[in-house]
Amino acid sequence: MSASETCLYEAQGVSKNYGSVVALQEVSLPVHAGEIVGLVGDNGAGKSTLVKVLSGAHQPTAGSVALEGTRRVWKSPREAIDAGVETLYQEAGLAPHLSVSGNVFLGREQTVPGLLGRLGFLAEKAMDAKAHADLERVGIAVPSSRRSVTELSGGQRQAVAIGRAVAWARKVIILDEPTNQLGARQAGEVLHVMRAAKAHGLGVIFVSHTLPHVLEVSDRIVVLRLGRVVADRPASSFTPDSLLGAITGLAQP
């Protein structure tokens, strides 16, 4: 298929069993550069499992993932991150006692040059400036990247978490429930950041229970039910009712 040639990141016929429990059955999910794919489904439909396979946290029982047409086997999330696939987990969040730039650079700190740098001494000013620039580049205005995250509002925190993932992602970004527990205005900012990521040519996988958000921002929507893909269509072809019907299986989409 010619479509697969332009495909940026893809789950191909992925199945995942936990003992005798089948969590995913031959699921395929492609995402293209500059595309937002909404991934929806009821609790237990397999969304989290699929995210874990795509992010490198779990290996599929059968099937594979492919990045830019090359089959990849992630042994750890680190490998996926290094290959350009960033994941923002719902539970992970930020380290609240660190500064904004401390969080943006967490795990990838820059050190000062010379001997002190080899001892791990941090280039705080450079990271503060770069964190500010990176967040601004992806459309997030934080007054000072030196501020402790504890002093930020819930919406600002989520924006920083997403900004961090978007800033580091080189190819694909997977967002697991990024608008959960946010007010309308804050959720709007998150959707804005996702559009900015899309405009920068990233492939975005957007996992959410909040169907209006999914319908608003996605180019394509993939519906999972009981571990299978039951719909994969342009977002414009869904209405709120038909999407809900596809998720629950109570009405034909």
Binding site: G93, A95, L106
Partner: peptide, 28 residues
Amino acid sequence: GLFLHKARFGRYTYAIGSNAFAARAAGI
């Protein structure tokens, strides 16, 4: 004190105490 407040060693110490899950997700 310098290692706690100025170096990576301290940064990871704070990060783990602040949110071990986030620290792990960040590759620490």
